[in-house]
């Protein structure tokens, strides 16, 4: 899911950084305007990014294998606008510590995962409406599902569309579709995982849910 260094042309990497810079600025601005000062933004984004980083080490079972959760949906639900800088920090450490993703592609990877988190958070809040307690499983599931799906489609599209022009256009399109279909089990698993975590949090610590 994370595009490594050297895979994308420099122009795309620069565009990715520009998009990420804009979304980071917008996220911090929005988070501050909702009565959260800089200290709250920094503490919430950094500590929760670390928590999500550690949670991503837990494997979700998809028989016959198990996979790491992506957690874009859950981050969008719990952190709202702050999820974008938190994901940016998490991706930086994944690149530095484990070689997942890269430094030149950090902007594109952040746009893919961070954008998915923002959209998934919005989907959750839209579906949940005002009734926080009664509706937890379905909005949680959709947020997790949407988070993975958007990230996969964005990453796949960027990868395939930036490949050299020797690839047939029809094959490009069907490859993006095939990639999305191949990730469906992961999207379902992440959807269920997100839904159950949200339900657990609603019972134990409901003030965590924005």
């Amino acid at each position: 899911m994370h595009i490594p260094d050297g895979m994308l042309p420099a122009e795309v990497c620069i565009a990715g950084y520009a998009g990420t810079a804009f979304l980071t600025w917008l996220s911090v601005k929005k988070a501050r305007s909702s009565s959260e000062d800089s200290a709250r933004v920094v503490s919430r984004a950094s500590v929760m990014a670390a928590a999500f980083f550690v949670v991503s080490w837990i494997h979700i079972p998809i028989p016959p294998v198990s996979v790491h959760p992506i957690l874009a949906g859950l981050m969008g639900i719990l952190l709202g606008w702050i999820s974008f800088p938190a994901i940016l920090a998490g991706l930086f450490f994944q690149a530095a510590m484990f070689g997942h993703g890269g430094f030149t592609t950090l902007g594109i990877n952040a746009l893919s995962m961070g954008g998915a988190a923002l959209l998934a958070g919005a989907v959750y809040r839209l579906l949940r409406g005002k009734h926080k307690e009664n509706m937890s499983l379905l909005p949680g599931f959709f947020a997790g599902f949407v988070g993975v799906s958007i990230a996969v489609i964005f990453t796949g599209s960027i990868l395939i569309l930036t490949m050299p022009e020797h690839i047939d256009k029809g094959i490009e399109l069907s490859s993006i579709l095939a990639m999305a279909v191949a990730h469906l089990p992961l999207a379902f698993a992440e959807g269920f995982f997100t839904a159950f975590v949200v339900r657990f949090l609603l019972k134990v610590k409901p003030d965590m849910l924005i």
């Binding site: 980071t24 950094s46 800088p85 938190a86």
Partner: peptide, 13 residues
């Protein structure tokens, strides 16, 4: 603000 988030994330991981 980004540097602070990055440094603190590293510490809390």
């Amino acid at each position: 603000i980004l540097v602070d988030i990055g440094i603190m994330t590293g510490r809390y991981i």
